[in-house]
């Protein structure tokens, strides 16, 4: 029987004391070598899902299997690497000591743990801080160290909860590259994030969760191919009368300080509009076909109450 790195079926999680439903009959499957983006607004249930996957939370009903084994089986965790949102470490340990400590928890012996600690500190760009106590680390540095400890055992499945939050643009690019490298070597990545452009750049498939329910899932191409394309034409020197006349044939006209931005969803009509602009004696500054981004798509779905 084929086993997937991650199979979730009808997962429901109700927090005991409050009786609050955090997840409701959530089902999803992540296939081997897939980079799966897990999207949702705050409080949607993303972190709850990830905590269940690593055994920090016990779920109410449903089933969660990783590599065909129940999530409660601690041995399955030899095959995963987990980075929680805003990872915390022992502040009295240095970065090197921290990784050696996690190495020992993963069964790595002295020299092997030492070598891997050095290797993965370099991978995440923290070699220079190997002997610095983690208590002095910024959030971004802790985030990188979190990723380094998740890579120590060469996991088949990486579970990442907001791994790019708190990082500066350089750090984000660096961590994004590490994740892409892992994906390129055949690892499966389950990745929750608010940073939608990063999800779009990294993930092959995404799932959108809202109020504990999976609203939609599919490849980014599938989701965005259903959406409309827009052509944006930026024009300078267009008279108000010409702009008013053109506005009847385009979907929207925006006026900036000394330019007009005309948008149309009809790419055929764009050609005709361009001719009319030139005939009016105005200058075309740019023409850019704009495809709906994942962020636009996400905002649109959330705006419509998340109903799929």
């Amino acid at each position: 029987m084929e086993t997937h790195p991650l199979e979730i079926e009808n997962l429901t999680m109700i927090y005991g004391g409050k009786g609050q439903k955090a997840l409701s009959e959530l089902s999803l499957t992540v296939s081997e070598k897939e980079v799966f983006g897990y999207l949702g607004p705050n409080g949607a249930g993303k972190t709850t899902t990830l905590k269940i996957l690593v055994g920090l939370l016990r779920y109410t009903s449903g089933s969660v299997r990783m590599f065909g084994r129940n999530v409660g089986d601690s041995d399955v965790r030899t095959r995963i690497g987990f980075v929680p949102e805003d990872p915390r470490f022992y502040e009295y340990l240095t970065a090197g000591e921290t990784l050696r400590f996690f190495g020992r928890l993963l069964g790595l012996e002295g020299k092997s743990a030492e070598e891997k600690a050095g290797k993965y500190l370099e991978t995440v760009g923290l070699s220079y801080a190997a002997d610095t106590r983690v208590g002095k680390f910024s959030r971004g540095m802790r985030q990188r160290l979190g990723l380094a400890q998740a890579l120590l055992n060469g996991p088949d499945l990486l579970l990442l909860d907001e791994p790019l939050s708190g990082l500066d643009p350089v750090g984000r690019a660096q961590i994004r590259d590490v994740i892409l490298e892992q994906a390129a070597t055949g690892k499966t990545v389950f990745f929750s994030s608010h940073v939608l452009p990063d999800v779009e750049a990294i993930c092959s498939r995404v799932g959108i969760i809202c109020e504990g329910r999976l609203r939609e899932s599919g490849t980014i191409e599938e989701m965005l191919s259903k959406s409309l394309e827009t052509v944006e034409i930026v024009v300078s020197g267009l008279s108000e009368a010409a702009a008013a006349s053109l506005s009847e044939d385009v979907d929207a006209v925006r006026k900036t300080q000394n330019m007009h931005v005309l948008s149309t969803t009809d790419s055929g009509k764009a050609q005709e509009i361009l001719k009319r602009i030139i005939a009016e004696g105005a200058a075309v500054e740019s023409v850019s076909p704009r495809r709906e981004t994942l962020e636009d798509y996400f905002m649109r779905r959330m705006g419509s109450g998340g109903e799929a």
Partner: peptide, 14 residues
């Protein structure tokens, strides 16, 4: 409280 247990218990440790 400090959430250091999150990373430790996500390892193959009972």
């Amino acid at each position: 409280d400090n959430r250091t247990s999150y990373l430790i218990l996500s390892k193959p440790l009972r």
